[in-house]
Design a protein around this nucleic acid. Structure first.
Length: 540
RNA sequence: GCCCUUGUAGUUCAAUUGGAUAGAACUGAAGUUUCCUAAACUUCCAAUACAAGUUCAAUUCUUGUCAAGGGUACCA
């Protein structure tokens, strides 16, 4: 529709200013409905170039426009020089039919045939997932869903490292607790993992192997498998499932990191100093050189990160997405620069940074640290308020906003959570359709919908038809909160329609038409909720 | 110190990335159910941190001040 209009507008402009005149025409959906369905500011832009009165330019453009009356009802010129287009009801009635014919696939873009990799959470298995990880998890999974709806084949990936210093301390923490249980007097260091889950793992070891375990390796391994299994369970509760768990260790084993070191040395990107290997500031966009291999021989995170991303690039995904917390904001440019220095293309790597979640409990900020075990686990939260609420809460805000999560509020006021507003609309529609069928009225897709004429009916249809474009936009800008906002508006518009119009009445034509509008609304709400990973209740 | 985010109703967040009258939710005040789900609807109160600048137009861009979070490691 927008493309069609653009062509016609440009045509008209060229009639006035000559065939060669060219300008980008932006069409926007105005905020208020008095300004029409689509609007353009070209007249303002041209007026600036030509230093003429924008209104008179707009006037000329409109006069030369040739348009089909069945699609555009009227065109208006407004104040500074906007040109506003009003679509016909007929156009929207056809759009409604379109929704109904696509059903559960409405909004899908099937023709892309591309692949994408979305990496998210990627927390090392040193403890249960925290509420902070929850935001990352839900964003990642939803981005993946959006891409799937836009025709991508998506791989969900979790990257972890079980060989670092943290993991060593984790193993030691378990071992000390194990010895403690066995009755030994142990001083448990402050900077070891304090959580109760460590003691539970130690107890499991004791009941499985008795009290005489010596082998250090087994403490760490047990901790890893236990914690990972918990992490997976937590993800399952949120309906999140990974295709690949990628262990950093694989990169060393297969020589991927050595390979990169050699290439860096060869092309002058890296140099040795003080017994360490440094990545030169020449290739980084920073002032300082950065260490990639410590003088101890161990690599810093930069090296395996570069190697890992190179592996992903080599799998030829059309799109590679990293979901990271804001603490990584300074590190990913180094990784990208490193990849460039290796001659890799990074245009298709998209890094989405989300701000942290601040947890408030009883009005106080809770500082979280896995080490100190003063975190609130994601698991607890899900058990408390449910998966739907957790997902919606993390998704409804733009990822760039620092969001405050008031636990006390979330727990006590869960009934007033906005997610129920959406689900209620869905359930309400289901109930209406149920009621109709009890009266012997079933959905008739061939019913005449031109009787849908009132403001609330047309407004609802208008909103529904925006769904596919919205999904397409989100697959490019990844502003997933816009989907939440949109669905909220759909629910609101539906409730308004419901209060102003009775669906099941004596009037058969009207009943059939309104039932179809209900069905279309249910379709859009249902599809949207599915993308958000939220359930679509038939009853509440 | 330097760098990156972010400052919007009492509170938590939006605003099609330069558009027209800044939208919601919660809270507070007042209403709506003999009728398909009142977890709903309808009113009302209320905000762009501060100060300059750029222009037809600034919450959005630039500069400064103030405040919050993160980074600034041979930690991840």
């Amino acid at each position: 529709m927008a493309d069609y209009l653009k062509k016609i507008i440009l045509n008209s402009i060229q009639k006035i200013l000559g065939e060669t005149f060219s300008i980008e025409i932006k069409l926007e959906k105005p905020k208020i409905k008095e300004h029409g369905d689509l609007s353009t500011n070209v007249a303002l832009a041209i007026a600036k170039q030509l230093k003429k009165n924008p209104i008179s330019i707009a006037d000329q453009i409109v006069q030369k426009i040739e348009i089909e009356k069945s699609i555009i009802e009227k065109i208006e010129i407004e104040k500074p020089g906007f040109i506003n287009f009003f679509f016909s009801k007929n156009f929207y009635h056809n759009e409604l039919k379109n929704i109904l014919s696509h059903g559960n696939d409405y909004g899908k873009n099937k023709f892309q045939n591309k692949t994408a990799n979305v990496e998210f959470i990627s927390a090392n298995p040193t403890g249960p997932l925290t509420v902070g990880h929850g935001r990352n998890a839900v964003i990642g999974d939803t981005v993946a869903n959006i891409l799937e709806w836009n025709g991508y084949k998506v791989t969900r990936e979790y990257y972890f490292n079980d060989a670092g210093r943290q993991m060593k301390i984790l193993g030691e923490s378990v071992r000390l607790r194990y010895l403690q249980i066995g009755g030994e007097k142990i001083i448990f260091p402050d900077d070891y993992y304090q959580g109760n889950y460590i003691i539970e793992i130690a107890e499991k070891l004791k009941s499985e192997f008795g009290e005489n375990l010596k082998e250090e390796k087994i403490f760490k391994e047990k901790a890893e498998t236990e914690i990972f299994s918990d992490i997976k369970k937590t993800c399952e509760k949120l309906n999140i499932c990974f295709d690949i768990f990628f262990n950093e260790h694989k990169l060393y084993k297969e020589g991927k990191t050595d390979e990169i070191i050699n290439e860096f040395k060869k092309n002058g990107s890296a140099f040795e100093k003080d017994g360490a290997l440094w990545l030169s500031s020449n290739i980084l966009k920073s002032e300082k050189d950065k260490v990639i291999v410590k003088s101890s021989g161990e690599p810093t995170y930069r090296l395996p990160d570069i190697a890992y991303h190179r592996e992903k690039i080599r799998k030829n995904y059309d799109l590679i997405i990293d979901i990271l917390g804001s603490d990584h904001i300074a590190t990913y440019p180094d990784v990208l620069a490193g990849l460039c220095a290796l001659g890799e293309k990074t245009n298709h790597i998209k890094v989405l940074i989300h701000q942290f979640v601040t947890i408030l409990q009883n009005g106080e900020i809770v500082k979280m640290s896995t080490r100190k075990a003063n975190f609130v686990t994601l698991d607890e939260l899900i058990d408390e308020v449910g998966s739907d609420v957790v997902r919606y809460f993390f998704l409804m805000r733009s990822i760039g906003s620092h969001l405050n999560f008031d636990l006390t509020l979330a727990k006590t006021q869960s009934d007033e959570n906005p997610v129920y507003y959406l689900q209620y609309a869905h359930a309400r529609i289901a109930s209406i359709i149920r009621f109709a069928s009890e009266q012997g009225i079933s959905l008739n897709k061939d019913a005449d919908i031109s009787v849908l004429d009132s403001e609330s009916e047309i407004n609802l249809i208008k909103l529904l038809t925006q769904f596919p474009i919205l999904l397409q936009n989100i697959s490019i800008n990844f502003e997933i909160h816009l989907l939440c906002e949109y669905l909220h508006n759909v629910a609101g518009e539906f409730h308004k329609f419901y209060h102003e119009n009775r669906v099941v009445t004596e009037n058969e034509n009207l009943t059939s038409a309104r039932l179809l509008l209900c069905e279309a609304t249910k379709t859009v709400l249902g599809n949207g909720l599915k993308i958000l990973g939220i359930s679509t209740p038939e009853k509440m």
